[in-house]
Amino acid sequence: METREQPAITFTGVTKRYKDTLALDGVDLEVPSGLLTGFLGPNGAGKTTSFRAIMGLTAATAGTIRVLGMQVGPDTHRIVKRVGAIIEEPGLHKTLTARDNLQVSADTIGAGAGRIPELLDFVSLSEVADKKVGQFSKGMRQRLALAQAMLSDPDLLILDEPLDGLDPQGQVDLKERLRALASESNKTIVVSSHNLADVEQLADHVVVINKGRVVTTGTVRDLLGDDGSFEVKVADLTAAQAALIAAGIDSHVASDHLSVTATDGSDISRILAGAGIYPSALVPVRRSLESVFLQLTGDDQ
């Protein structure tokens, strides 16, 4: 899934200090183009500060940020034309209707009103387009903000905790829309979350950030990888375990299966077949993003 294109976002030695707080501590990172990247980290890790710095809402104390090949600061007014963003809370006029909110944004960015009906449809708000936003649920406001961010048909979408505070149905709706957007267009989407499961479900690429530092980056596949263990189902667990231990492979019985530590599943098959035991299932155990995250951030969390 990795592309060879120029990275959508590049941080080089970016530091942001607020008085006594070091929000970003010499961050170096690249966000690949054309993928859905998840910024994962606990509250206060530096996710929102990173997003604010990308959009020129706060100036980095040191370092440079490039977005779509342009440098934040001198080129910010050009960058924002190609980026749609929801930073912190959706910035909507509660006394205006959904349609008027989109019209205000369309006027501000100099886009025509032509995409408004299509976007209202995309976020399933066509039927309430002429209702005031003050009457909307948080999920509806979040979806409207997504439509607002997409008005200019941006190359890059930056969404800060878009799932935060949504009810389960709202989360499912928004995730479906984001996944559809990522797979059907060549847009780069960056989503932050402190929720491991959300990032695991949504993202192709992950940036793990903690205490203002990037802990690791990579594709979800690379990060999760194989755990180096297999779940083996056989009729006689004790006999299978004895055969594996005799061959020098560590294993232990776990309820209805054997948990076997090995680098190659074919070794397990061969040893068990040699003992006349044929597994009904032999499944590599993948690590969860949660376990990776906890491993990377140590005792901090």
Binding site: G56, L57, H77, V80, A85, I87, E88, P90, G91, A145
Partner: peptide, 9 residues
């Protein structure tokens, strides 16, 4: 305001 200045910086 944050939204507005991310639309016209």
């Amino acid at each position: 305001w944050a939204t507005a200045v991310t639309q016209e910086a």
